[in-house]
């Protein structure tokens, strides 16, 4: 009898805790969405922001967030793919590998504001890159690299060794086995990790305040020459992202509708992150089916 009672108590406690977690999440999401969604309109999503008058939008910030995310992925994905493959498939067990692993772990636990300040000192000031998208993308790469490397390494490791043996026993080289057998099998996990990481990068503010800057300069969406300073693609222009925008409005916003803009921006940010999370699952599953020919 006592065992049964203990069991019931334990299960109830666990259920309550789980429900609490869901409740907190639902409350947070609900609050942000309910207060934000009424402010979202096509105009809000596309118009330029206003500093002193109401009726401003978040068009530039939204574009900046997406562009910065893409740049960050372009820089960080190849590096972490290489590092992940090395760590999972080639790294011998020695001091060097242990140091690399340790470095990755330390890097992943750095507070993002520290990454931001470091980026500010090194890229913005020392290397004279100014507040720019490029500085921001490199800072975000520091932030994203350890997570992505770990994710890729773990996805590769999750592929059974039997698959490696199968490749080698057919006379394939180790490199071919890794790239043509192991990598495709790990790809769904890798993609899921990349997209989840993208969600984090998308919502990051602290690392960007001192690197990509806090101003949304006027950009001309008719001009796609990346070397022109008003072009959206220009790498050296300062670029306030959506997350930074929210932070800025709430700390020093003087427009009359600051609260509404902030609520709307938060809702857009949350929706974007949710889309990332869901699409991570969908894309991961579909890729797996496609690559493994499971119908």
């Amino acid at each position: 009898m006592k065992t049964k009672l203990q069991n019931n108590v334990a299960i109830t406690v666990i259920r309550v805790i789980a429900a609490l977690v869901v409740l907190i999440l639902a409350f947070l999401l609900g609050d942000i969405l309910i207060s934000g969604i009424p402010h979202i309109s096509w105009h809000f999503l596309t118009a330029a922001s206003q500093s002193f008058t109401s009726g401003g939008g978040i068009g530039v910030q939204l574009f900046n967030s997406i562009y910065l995310l893409i740049l960050t992925l372009i820089i960080s994905f190849p590096i972490s793919l290489g590092a992940g493959i090395f760590l999972s498939e080639y790294a011998p067990k020695n001091i060097f590998t242990a140091t690399v692993r340790m470095a990755i772990e330390v890097l992943s636990s750095l507070p993002s504001v520290v990454v931001g300040l470091f980026g500010f000192l090194l890229f913005v000031v020392q290397m004279d890159m100014g507040f720019s998208i490029l500085s921001g993308a490199i800072a975000l790469t520091f932030f994203n690299l350890p997570l992505l490397t770990r994710n890729i390494e773990e996805s590769l490791r999750a592929v059974p060794d039997l698959q490696r043996e199968a490749g080698l026993s057919l006379g394939l080289s180790k490199w071919k086995t890794v790239t043509k057998i192991i990598l495709p099998e790990a790809l769904p996990g890798i993609v899921t990790g990349v997209v989840l990481g993208a969600g984090r990068v998308f919502g990051e503010a602290a690392a960007l305040i001192y690197t990509a800057g806090q101003s949304a300069t006027n950009i001309n969406f008719g001009n796609w020459n990346p070397f022109n300073s008003t072009s959206p693609l220009n790498l050296m222009r300062p670029a306030e992202t959506l997350a930074v925008h929210i932070w800025k409005i709430n700390s020093e916003g003087v427009m009359p509708d600051a609260a509404a803009v902030s609520a709307g921006s938060s809702a857009v940010l949350i929706i974007a992150v949710l889309i990332f999370n869901f699409s991570a699952r969908v894309i991961g599953n579909q890729l797996y089916r496609k690559l493994t020919a499971t119908k």
Binding site: P160, L162, Q163, E165, A166, G167, L168, S169, L170, G171, L172, K180, I181, P184, E185, L291, T292, A293
Partner: peptide, 27 residues
């Protein structure tokens, strides 16, 4: 090259996560 002449089958079946056809044509 040598392993093409001396092939191996393992204890647990380990087909590639590919179609039946590709399992054979891949290598």
């Amino acid at each position: 090259e040598m392993r093409k002449h001396i092939g191996m089958v393992f204890q647990r079946p380990n087909p590639f996560s590919k179609s039946i056809r590709e399992n054979i044509t891949f290598a």
